[in-house]
Protein backbone atom coordinates (compact mmCIF):
# COMPACT_ATOMS: atom_id res chain seq x y z
CA UNK A 1 0.00 0.00 0.00
CA UNK A 2 1.53 3.30 -0.97
CA UNK A 3 1.52 6.05 1.60
CA UNK A 4 -2.15 7.07 1.94
CA UNK A 5 -3.14 10.70 2.21
CA UNK A 6 -4.09 10.40 5.87
CA UNK A 7 -0.54 9.52 6.83
CA UNK A 8 0.79 12.39 4.81
CA UNK A 9 -1.42 14.84 6.62
CA UNK A 10 -0.92 13.57 10.12
CA UNK A 11 0.90 15.44 12.84
CA UNK A 12 3.00 14.33 15.77
CA UNK A 13 3.60 16.17 18.99
CA UNK A 14 5.95 15.23 21.80
CA UNK A 15 5.74 16.94 25.19
CA UNK A 16 7.41 16.78 28.58
CA UNK A 17 5.31 14.63 30.86
CA UNK A 18 4.41 17.44 33.19
CA UNK A 19 1.06 18.84 34.19
CA UNK A 20 0.47 22.12 32.38
CA UNK A 21 1.76 20.91 29.04
CA UNK A 22 -1.62 19.39 28.25
CA UNK A 23 -2.82 22.96 27.75
CA UNK A 24 -0.29 23.45 24.96
CA UNK A 25 -1.26 20.10 23.46
CA UNK A 26 -4.88 21.25 23.41
CA UNK A 27 -4.00 24.36 21.43
CA UNK A 28 -1.86 22.38 18.99
CA UNK A 29 -4.48 19.71 18.36
CA UNK A 30 -7.26 22.30 18.10
CA UNK A 31 -5.26 24.12 15.41
CA UNK A 32 -4.80 20.81 13.60
CA UNK A 33 -8.52 20.01 13.78
CA UNK A 34 -9.36 23.47 12.46
CA UNK A 35 -7.30 22.66 9.34
CA UNK A 36 -9.77 19.87 8.75
CA UNK A 37 -12.88 21.96 9.27
CA UNK A 38 -14.10 20.37 12.43
CA UNK A 39 -16.96 22.55 13.70
CA UNK A 40 -16.17 24.76 16.69
CA UNK A 41 -18.18 22.78 19.25
CA UNK A 42 -16.54 19.54 18.20
CA UNK A 43 -13.18 21.23 18.61
CA UNK A 44 -14.17 22.14 22.18
CA UNK A 45 -15.08 18.50 22.86
CA UNK A 46 -11.81 17.43 21.33
CA UNK A 47 -9.83 19.83 23.54
CA UNK A 48 -11.48 18.52 26.68
CA UNK A 49 -10.96 14.91 25.64
CA UNK A 50 -7.35 15.57 24.76
CA UNK A 51 -6.49 17.23 28.05
CA UNK A 52 -8.05 14.37 30.00
CA UNK A 53 -6.10 11.84 27.97
CA UNK A 54 -2.85 13.79 28.49
CA UNK A 55 -3.45 14.15 32.22
CA UNK A 56 -3.99 10.41 32.44
CA UNK A 57 -0.77 9.76 30.57
CA UNK A 58 1.17 12.23 32.74
CA UNK A 59 -0.24 11.21 36.10
CA UNK A 60 -0.75 7.50 35.66
CA UNK A 61 1.04 6.11 32.64
CA UNK A 62 4.18 8.11 33.35
CA UNK A 63 3.65 8.29 37.12
CA UNK A 64 4.38 12.03 37.24
CA UNK A 65 7.99 11.56 36.20
CA UNK A 66 8.89 14.84 34.44
CA UNK A 67 11.81 13.24 32.60
CA UNK A 68 9.42 11.15 30.55
CA UNK A 69 7.52 12.20 27.44
CA UNK A 70 4.01 12.07 26.12
CA UNK A 71 3.51 11.55 22.39
CA UNK A 72 0.42 12.60 20.52
CA UNK A 73 -0.43 11.48 17.01
CA UNK A 74 -3.31 12.97 15.07
CA UNK A 75 -4.55 12.16 11.64
CA UNK A 76 -7.68 12.31 9.59
CA UNK A 77 -9.06 9.13 8.09
CA UNK A 78 -11.98 9.96 5.88
CA UNK A 79 -14.31 11.99 8.07
CA UNK A 80 -12.77 10.83 11.33
CA UNK A 81 -10.08 12.53 13.33
CA UNK A 82 -8.02 9.93 15.15
CA UNK A 83 -5.96 10.97 18.15
CA UNK A 84 -3.51 8.74 20.00
CA UNK A 85 -1.91 9.72 23.29
CA UNK A 86 1.03 7.53 24.20
CA UNK A 87 2.98 7.44 27.45
CA UNK A 88 6.06 5.47 28.43
CA UNK A 89 4.09 2.88 30.34
CA UNK A 90 5.60 3.12 33.82
CA UNK A 91 2.31 1.81 35.05
CA UNK A 92 -0.37 0.25 32.90
CA UNK A 93 -3.50 2.34 32.93
CA UNK A 94 -5.89 0.31 30.84
CA UNK A 95 -8.78 -0.44 33.18
CA UNK A 96 -9.70 -4.08 33.41
CA UNK A 97 -13.41 -3.42 33.41
CA UNK A 98 -15.61 -1.09 31.48
CA UNK A 99 -15.41 2.44 32.89
CA UNK A 100 -17.83 3.05 35.70
CA UNK A 101 -20.56 5.56 35.19
CA UNK A 102 -20.92 8.72 37.24
CA UNK A 103 -23.58 7.22 39.51
CA UNK A 104 -21.19 4.46 40.54
CA UNK A 105 -18.40 6.94 41.02
CA UNK A 106 -20.43 9.15 43.28
CA UNK A 107 -21.61 6.08 45.14
CA UNK A 108 -17.95 5.52 45.91
CA UNK A 109 -17.53 2.49 43.71
CA UNK A 110 -14.11 2.62 42.20
CA UNK A 111 -11.71 5.52 42.51
CA UNK A 112 -12.32 8.92 41.03
CA UNK A 113 -9.43 8.08 38.79
CA UNK A 114 -10.89 7.18 35.50
CA UNK A 115 -13.33 10.06 35.53
CA UNK A 116 -11.30 11.55 32.73
CA UNK A 117 -11.72 8.44 30.64
CA UNK A 118 -15.44 8.46 31.29
CA UNK A 119 -15.65 12.05 30.13
CA UNK A 120 -13.69 11.25 26.98
CA UNK A 121 -15.92 8.32 26.13
CA UNK A 122 -18.92 10.66 26.30
CA UNK A 123 -17.35 13.36 24.15
CA UNK A 124 -15.91 11.10 21.47
CA UNK A 125 -17.18 8.41 19.18
CA UNK A 126 -14.69 5.79 20.17
CA UNK A 127 -12.25 5.82 23.02
CA UNK A 128 -10.09 3.19 24.59
CA UNK A 129 -6.63 1.74 25.03
CA UNK A 130 -5.10 0.00 22.07
CA UNK A 131 -1.89 -1.96 21.77
CA UNK A 132 0.94 0.53 21.89
CA UNK A 133 4.53 0.32 20.80
CA UNK A 134 7.46 -0.19 23.17
CA UNK A 135 5.34 -0.99 26.18
CA UNK A 136 3.70 2.40 26.45
CA UNK A 137 0.02 2.85 27.03
CA UNK A 138 -1.70 4.06 23.90
CA UNK A 139 -5.04 5.73 24.39
CA UNK A 140 -6.94 6.27 21.20
CA UNK A 141 -10.05 8.29 20.57
CA UNK A 142 -11.83 9.43 17.46
CA UNK A 143 -14.11 12.31 16.55
CA UNK A 144 -16.23 12.07 13.42
CA UNK A 145 -16.78 15.32 11.66
CA UNK A 146 -20.36 16.39 11.92
CA UNK A 147 -21.73 18.37 9.05
CA UNK A 148 -23.73 21.44 9.79
CA UNK A 149 -27.34 20.83 8.81
CA UNK A 150 -29.14 23.63 7.08
CA UNK A 151 -26.93 26.36 8.53
CA UNK A 152 -25.16 28.41 5.90
CA UNK A 153 -22.96 26.43 3.57
Amino acid sequence: MSSPAYIQTGMELSLPSELGFEVIARDAVAAFARRLCLPADQIEDLKTALSEACINAIEHGNSLNPDLRVQIYCRFEGERLIVEVIDEGVSPVAPKNAPLNVVDKIAGLGSLRGMGLMLISQLCDEAGFVAGKDGGNCFRFTVSRRHANGVGY
Partner: peptide, 15 residues
Protein backbone atom coordinates in the same frame (compact mmCIF):
# COMPACT_ATOMS: atom_id res chain seq x y z
CA UNK B 1 11.26 20.77 24.85
CA UNK B 2 8.19 20.37 22.69
CA UNK B 3 8.59 18.70 19.33
CA UNK B 4 6.08 19.05 16.55
CA UNK B 5 6.18 17.28 13.19
CA UNK B 6 3.91 18.61 10.48
CA UNK B 7 3.15 17.65 6.89
CA UNK B 8 4.49 20.03 4.25
CA UNK B 9 1.12 21.42 3.41
CA UNK B 10 0.44 25.13 3.41
CA UNK B 11 -2.01 26.00 6.16
CA UNK B 12 -0.48 23.60 8.67
CA UNK B 13 1.93 26.32 9.75
CA UNK B 14 -1.04 27.51 11.82
CA UNK B 15 -0.50 24.49 14.06
Amino acid sequence: VIELRLPSKLGYERV
